[in-house]
Write a protein that binds this DNA or RNA. Structure first.
Lengths: 156, 156
DNA sequence: TATTGTTATACTCTATAACTATA
DNA sequence: TATAGTTATAGAGTATAACAATA
C-alpha cells in the first residue's frame, strides 16, 4: 500500500502526463470552442446545438433524422425534440417524403436559411481565429489528421 | 423567396463546406471519443466526467477547485457537486489547506489512485487507437496543433 | 420481425444568480 | 469590496426503454 495521504505520492506523479494525452487535448480544445460559441451565438438567439443542425442542413439538405443525428453527433432522442423546437421557431420543416413512409426529411425553411447564412461570418471568424498562425498547408494537414482520428475511433 | 422546397436550393448548396469546418471536425472527433469512452468506462463504475477529474489529479495533486475546473473544462458549479459525489464514493478528499482559508484542496484517496491507475491501460488504448497510422512525429505535431488551437481560442 | 422516428423517465450538465466564508 | 467555493433553480442534454408506424 504505497499510496496514501502524506508521504508516498509517486503513484500519481509517476506516470500520467495529461498534457500530452490526446483525448484530453481534444476535449479541451473542443470545450473552449463550444463555450465561446455558446456565448456569442446566444445573442443571435440560436443555441449551439441548433447551430449544428442549421450548419449540417446548410451543407446538405434535406436530410433524414438519422443522417442528421450522425452528422451532428447529437443523440437521436435529443435531436427529435431539438428539431421539434426548431420547427416551432420556424427554422426547419419536417416532411415525410415519398419512398419510405417511416423516414422524415428535415429541411431548412426560408427563415432557417437566412438565420444560418447570417451566422456564417461568425463561423468564418472562429475558423480563422482557431487557425491563427497556421499556414494553409498546416491547416489542411491538421484537419486531415482530425478526420483520421475520427475514423480510427470507429474501431473502439 | 428563392429558397423553398423543391427548386432553388443554391443558397444552401452555395457555400458551406461543413466537412472542412474546423469546429465541426473538432466536435465530431471529440464526441466520438466521448461516446466510446462513456460506454466503456461505465463498466468500471466511473463516469466520463469523474474520469476527467481522476486524470487531472493523477497528473498533479492536490489541486484547488478552480484549478481543477480549468484543467477539466468542467463548470465550477458542476464540479462542486461532482466532487461531492466522488467524495461520497471515496475517490477524492476535500481539505482546507493552510494559507488561504477560502481555498479547498482536492486530493485523491488511496482508492481514487487505485481506480485511476486501473484506468490508465484503457486510456493508453484510446490514445493508441486514436493515433493509429500516425508516425510519432505526426502525433507530436498533431498534439502541438491542438494546443495552438486551444491557445488561439483564448482570443475569441 | 426489423427499422425509423417519437415519447417517457430519470439522471446529469449548464447557466445564472444568490449565498457563505474568507480576504 | 473582492474572491473561492457552494447551493438553488430552471433549462437542456443523455441513456434506456417503451412505443407507433412502416417495411
Amino acid at each position: 500500500m504505497a499510496v496514501t495521504g502524506d508521504c508516498a505520492r509517486e503513484p500519481a506523479a509517476e506516470m500520467f502526463d495529461l498534457a500530452n494525452f490526446l483525448p484530453y487535448l481534444l476535449n479541451r480544445a473542443g470545450a473552449r470552442l463550444a463555450i465561446a460559441w455558446t456565448q456569442e451565438s446566444r445573442q443571435l438567439g440560436v443555441a449551439l446545438q441548433e447551430w449544428r443542425v442549421l450548419a449540417a442542413l446548410l451543407s446538405r439538405q434535406p436530410q433524414r433524422m438519422s443522417e442528421l443525428a450522425a452528422m451532428t453527433t447529437i443523440d437521436r432522442t435529443t435531436l427529435s425534440r431539438l428539431v421539434s423546437r426548431m420547427e416551432e421557431n420556424g427554422l426547419v420543416s419536417r416532411g415525410r417524403s415519398g419512398e419510405d413512409g417511416r423516414e422524415v426529411q428535415i429541411e431548412l425553411t426560408e427563415k432557417g436559411v437566412k438565420v444560418g447564412n447570417g451566422m456564417l461570418p461568425l463561423a468564418g471568424r472562429y475558423e480563422n481565429t482557431a487557425l491563427e498562425g497556421f499556414t494553409p498547408a498546416e491547416a489542411r494537414a491538421f484537419k486531415d489528421m482530425l478526420k483520421r482520428v475520427f475514423d480510427n475511433l470507429d474501431r473502439l
